[in-house]
Design a binder for these strands. Sequence first.
DNA 1: GTCTATAGACGGATAGAC
DNA 2: GTCTATCCGTCTATAGAC
Lengths: 208, 208
Amino acid sequence: MSKTTSPSKPQTRIQKRNIMIILDAALEVFSTYGFRGTTLDQIARQAGLSKPNVLYYFDGKEAIHLALLSQLLETWLDPLRAIDPQGDPKTELMRYIRHKLQMSRDFPRESRLFANEIVQGAPRMQAFLQGDLRDLVDEKAAVIQAWMKDGKLTQLDPFHLIFSIWALTQHYADFEAQIRLVRGSNITQPHDGSEDFLDQVFQKLLTP
Amino acid sequence: MSKTTSPSKPQTRIQKRNIMIILDAALEVFSTYGFRGTTLDQIARQAGLSKPNVLYYFDGKEAIHLALLSQLLETWLDPLRAIDPQGDPKTELMRYIRHKLQMSRDFPRESRLFANEIVQGAPRMQAFLQGDLRDLVDEKAAVIQAWMKDGKLTQLDPFHLIFSIWALTQHYADFEAQIRLVRGSNITQPHDGSEDFLDQVFQKLLTP
DNA sequence: GTCTATAGACGGATAGAC
DNA sequence: GTCTATCCGTCTATAGAC
């Protein structure tokens, strides 16, 4: 057993290091060109390795992509999971929004990897979306719903509220190219001002 | 001059018809698989034509894609252009939002074609984004800014406001797969309830 | 573990018959 | 205008030397 699909088996430091290098290179390329738009040559070049060497560590292009997705999905749910039913409603939601926006700012490649998959019909993420994610969304939507019934928040459809948070936060990573080109030199970062704006929007929106 | 890059030269009815069929088929496939993920075989099969026959009408894969994009960009700006500086601020913006949401509902493939391009860095749309779109956005942002100064709307960053409208409306088309899988059989259409939700959100947000 | 060379499949595009 | 057959480049993946 020499080849590795997921980087979870016993490895030397060299192996670990190369696997990390490959995954980082692959994230860069997959998030920019999508699965089919990416070639092993590109990944190898970005990683500074030869193509066969990349294939020594992973069973193939599909396996690299799968490793990236699984790695991503493990942490993707964390911010939503962190919403505490016992906490203060507005505080919890505002924290969630800031958390998601931070992820969009700090891990834009991961966001675009995800976006690429979804826009193209989520062929490799169906199980996740209709399994873990769906369960978690149902659970938290119920929590939000209860908060609203208690009058702690504006009455809104909790599912649409969650989707709107996703849309607004991920937009800055996924459509970064558009923001950058439309705003030009008026901004330095596509995220400029996004935190203040979303803070203002949701403060106003959520307050009954 | 037999081959046609853009369907704008004199044509017989048959030619017009086949060009339309090819463009529709190509939109279906490009919007689902992206540019590189799409093959001419797929387009030909979807169109019910042979591959060489497709290439009889267009100079190549790139030309088909270009024709779709140009066609799309012509109408993409219309809703934003329709914002009337003389009109009632909230009415104008709410109309814009509903208009954008309708386009997302009625032309989801066009929205995803666009999204695919942007997520991947907008390699074929730079000129449009930093040209026509940018000029129009600057112009309308100034209008919105003036409305806000007059106290007719909540004071917000007008650029972020425009981006948030794009994010929220296009999300229902671009991330349709996610919404469908997360909501499962609880909804029939990914757009279910989106109009009421966005109405409620922006009514509350824009009212000073 | 890493490389060069190459097999084998696929995709874009063309030739040429009808 | 439309088809079959095919060329040629690119891409994934493997063979095998070192």
